[in-house]
């Protein structure tokens, strides 16, 4: 168990990569502050099951990442628990509709940046401060190959993930003073709800462009996050790990 006795904060836990990461972390002995926007019976049952099966603590934390006051309140709740936080996974993100740049309203760009980039920065400021007190920690940002390679449409998504990648490299340097590592995974196209926004044509193109000729699975991304979060990667920081089936 790679994360035995550790505690993590993971955003976007209700579905997709976040939900898989929550499960993979629990399976590896990690207690988790499981952040998502709103409660549901299904999610409550899911975390209860994880707690029973893996004998870890899962603390659900519901807030809207688009609202900085709610993010601050959530951070204060974590802070008040006086728990040592070992890992932060900034996973939550949104994809816009697939429109061309010249037809993308500025407000839409700001909205996407707010969730995909600024909320992650805000959480890193709070959780990074907690980690700095212990002079240890691992932060994993969930970026995208779109942030590295670009792609058709979705300028705001691509740019927000590129910003997250830039921040990852910069923060790795700044946080090294506190022995905190900062890395990112850059998933390719993964079988989650988010691909519903992609056209069939674009989806087929994504599959045919990778060496393995298939979509990724959420758990495959979660396993890469596990590696970067764990001490198995103790001398790795400032890196962007592509998990995209090769290209």
């Amino acid at each position: 168990m790679l994360l035995q006795g550790k505690t993590a904060v993971i955003t976007g836990c209700s579905r997709g990569i976040g939900k898989s990461t929550l499960e993979v972390f629990a399976r590896n002995g990690c207690s988790v502050w499981a952040c998502c926007r709103k409660p549901s019976e299904e999610f409550e049952a899911f975390i209860l099951n994880l707690q029973n099966e893996y004998k870890v603590s899962i603390y659900p934390l519901y807030f809207d990442l688009a609202d900085s006051e709610q993010v601050k309140k959530a951070a204060k709740e974590i802070f008040s628990s006086k728990q040592k936080i070992d890992i932060l996974v900034n996973n939550a993100g949104v994809t816009p509709t697939n429109s061309l740049f010249l037809m993308t309203p500025l407000d839409s760009m700001k909205e996407i940046f707010n969730i995909n980039f600024f909320s992650s920065m805000q959480l890193i400021q709070y959780i990074g401060r907690l980690m700095s007190k212990n002079r240890s920690g691992s932060i994993v940002n969930v970026a995208s190959i779109a942030g590295l390679d670009g792609g058709p449409g979705q300028l705001e998504y691509t740019a927000s993930k590129a910003a997250l990648i830039g921040a990852t490299k910069k923060l790795a340097d700044e946080f090294a003073d506190y022995q905190i590592r900062v890395n990112a995974v850059a998933p390719g196209v993964v079988e989650t709800d988010m691909i519903g926004r992609m056209s069939e044509e674009l989806l087929q193109e994504s599959v045919s462009n990778n060496h393995m000729k298939r979509l990724g699975k959420a758990e495959e991304i979660a396993n890469a996050i596990l590696f970067l979060a764990s001490d198995q990667s103790s001398f790795i920081t400032g890196q962007i790990l592509r998990v995209d089936g090769g290209c």
Partner: peptide, 21 residues
């Protein structure tokens, strides 16, 4: 700046508070 964050961490621990940015 590094010392400043050490001071903030020490004060937050000592007084059990979380300071705003």
């Amino acid at each position: 700046s590094i010392g400043h964050m050490q001071l903030v961490a020490a004060l937050e621990t000592e007084f059990d508070i979380m300071m705003d940015m």
